[in-house]
Design a binder for these strands. Structure first.
Length: 577
RNA sequence: CGGGGAGUAGCGCAGUCUGGUUAGCGCGCUUGCUUCGGGAGCAAGAGGUCGGGAGUUCAAAUCUCCUCUCCCCGACCA
């Protein structure tokens, strides 16, 4: 490709609207342009990268035995009503009516559609295992789209769905996808990790997220320093502290009510009473679809709402409003306590071993001290309810945990029979018995993967593409357009490389070398061949690696073989690790 | 949906508080000459319904009201 014929509008300045580095650089490198909030156009350079990622995904999915399909993005409401997600999915689901006033939606994901195909086509156990995937534009009307392609409303996603006869089959399919995902992100040249994750709205029993490690990641990853436990912070289990014999050998102090005027926060109360937050038990009231629930947790810990939801087996829990808190405790927010509460009370494991602690008194401007379980407080259930935090120990081996940030680029789920049950997707087994198909689903954010690569690989001059997903592998820069020998040599190199199957961009624009170098760095082409006067007089050209600035000068006739070797080297480097 | 901020030339911004010539600056763009190894110089140009609507006024980018859009911080998303 010739630069002058390529639509590649690079910008010197960061766009005002961009906040994160990948968004700024994609914009400046002329890869994307915004149409509306969370909705982007891909310009030629951006699309080239997207296609590269897609191709890697496609190859690995095919290798893993999945078959490509393409499902509709406009979907009838009826199908979503069958799984009840028409009601459950909420505002993220973009809904509209067609000319006949039929309710439709733009697919945010395709479990319904694919399961509909499965229930029509799969009749026998002989037709499984089966894995179907597609690469397609999704739309999720996010509350707050941001960070360019990182969290758009419209985005390109690879979604795959596996169909098996039983759990054991699903286990195998899941594992195959897990391995395919590892290969995909490795081939993209990314540093990533797979973590245990929550299943969320998609549903199902188990799930892993594939995280690209990056400072700017929105996800917090917890991983053990010594064993292989790794999890999303939302999912991470807290280690249950050893249950000290409560009050044994030690006399419990008598319960006492204290005046705490206007002390509504843990900080205020603990400072006022001169105790540590670890000696206070917070009582948080939640509204759930099973009624009001009180949770007890140590003062320095936070409730993990998804754990609570899972424990209760309910849809969504939310911190109770002032009115509800008043109704349940008889006191305004900030003075709730477990003593004498009539609502269901669940305590975090961290509370189990506490003695003589502080709680609210369910009375304005008052707290109790020397509160004790059993004697003063009735707890219905103990459970792991808290958000894991820095300093916590590994729930598996007890060693220390480290916290890091990541970008979620892939997510795989064991769905089980959630969708086959509601949509009645069944087959006949060897014994002629009708059984539900066991499913898994597997997603990759294609645009987000490209963005994540930028987050991971960039410097102050711009993007540093890993070779496998670079929009071009090589850029040829003649330093002076007025010099015929330079231009001829550059043209010759360009033609030879193109002929050898190298993806090469020839910057034959009539601009100064500085401009060309800056643009080449900005758009992140891995190899740059500079054809300059001094070198050329001796029959030499220069090859420079974007990633480390390493420069080699070689005889111009050796260009093609050298470039091919360098490309090979970098392609393979991404596969190792 | 709360809370904060912003819409002025393709991009980045000043001007708005305190209304008053022809609305400026940098980058980019066009033409010519010179230049050519890290965003070149000189000269001449083109380009603006000041987000939209209504109002106040002799006069509105500037004041008032309404509205649209975008960005940032907040309740799990590839």
């Amino acid at each position: 490709m010739r630069y002058s014929q390529l639509m590649l509008p690079t910008l010197k300045e960061d766009p005002a609207e961009a906040e994160v580095i990948s968004h700024k650089l994609m914009f400046r490198a002329g890869m994307i342009r915004k149409l509306a909030a969370g909705i982007y156009s891909y310009l030629p350079l951006g699309l080239r990268v997207i296609r590269k990622v897609e191709e890697i995904v496609r190859e690995e999915m095919n290798r893993a035995g999945a078959q490509e399909v393409l499902l509709p993005c406009v979907q009838p409401a009826e199908l979503w009503m069958e799984t009840h997600r028409w009601e459950e999915y909420g505002k993220d689901l973009l809904r509209f009516k067609d000319r006949h006033s039929r309710d439709c939606c733009f697919g945010p994901t395709h479990e319904e559609v694919i399961t509909d195909i499965a229930r029509r086509e799969i009749r026998s156990y002989r037709q499984m295992p089966l894995n179907l995937y597609q690469i397609q534009t999704k739309f999720r009307d996010e509350i707050r789209p941001r960070f360019g392609l990182m969290r758009g409303r419209e985005f390109i996603m690879k979604d795959a769905y596996s169909f098996d006869t039983d759990e054991a089959g699903l286990e195998k399919s899941y594992h195959k996808m897990y391995e395919a995902y590892e290969r995909i992100f490795k081939r993209c040249g990314l540093t990533f990790t797979a973590v245990e994750a929550e299943t969320g709205l998609i549903g199902g029993s188990a799930s892993h997220e594939f995280m690209v490690m990056a400072e700017t990641g929105e996800e917090i990853i917890v991983s053990c320093q010594s064993c292989d436990y790794t999890a999303n912070v939302q999912k991470a289990e807290a280690k249950r502290t050893r249950l000290r014999a409560r009050g044994s050998g030690k006399t419990l102090k008598p319960l006492k009510k204290m005046e705490t005027p206007d002390m509504k926060t843990v900080e205020a109360v603990t400072q006022f009473l001169k105790v540590r937050p670890q000696n206070l038990v917070k009582t948080l009231i939640f509204e759930t679809d099973q009624g009001v629930v009180a949770t007890l947790i140590r003062g320095d810990h936070e409730i993990n709402e998804s754990k609570l939801e899972k424990l209760l087996g309910c849809g969504e829990v939310k911190l109770a409003s002032d009115d509800v808190v008043y109704g349940a405790t008889g006191a305004p927010k900030g003075f709730a306590g477990p003593i004498g509460l009539s609502v269901k009370t669940i305590a975090d494991y961290s509370v189990e071993s506490m003695v003589d602690f502080v709680t609210g008194a369910n009375e304005e401007d008052a707290h109790y001290i020397n509160v004790n379980l059993d004697r003063d407080v009735k707890v219905d259930q103990f459970a792991d309810l808290r958000m894991i935090k820095e300093g916590d120990r590994c729930p598996r081996c007890g060693k220390s945990l480290s916290f890091s940030r990541g970008i979620e680029v892939g997510h795989i789920f064991k769905l089980g029979t959630k969708y086959s049950k509601t949509l009645k997707a069944t087959y006949l087994d060897e014994n002629g018995r009708e059984r539900e198909i066991v499913m898994g689903c597997y997603g990759i954010g294609v645009g987000r993967t490209a963005a994540a690569a930028i987050e991971q690989y960039h410097d102050e001059d711009g993007i540093i593409w890993p070779m496998p997903i670079a929009p071009f592998q090589v850029i040829v820069v003649p330093v002076n357009n007025k010099s015929e020998p330079l231009m001829e040599t550059a043209e010759g190199i360009y033609r030879l490389l193109s002929g050898s199957g190298v993806e090469v961009l020839l910057d034959e624009r009539d601009s100064t070398p500085g401009v060309k170098f800056k643009d080449a760095d900005l758009i992140g082409i891995p190899l740059r061949i500079t054809v300059g006067e001094k070198n050329l007089k001796r029959g030499l050209v220069e090859i420079r690696r974007r990633k480390n600035g390493e420069t080699i000068v070689i005889g111009k006739e050796k260009t093609t073989e050298t470039v091919l070797a360098l490309i090979n080297e970098e392609m393979e480097a991404s596969l190792r690790v």
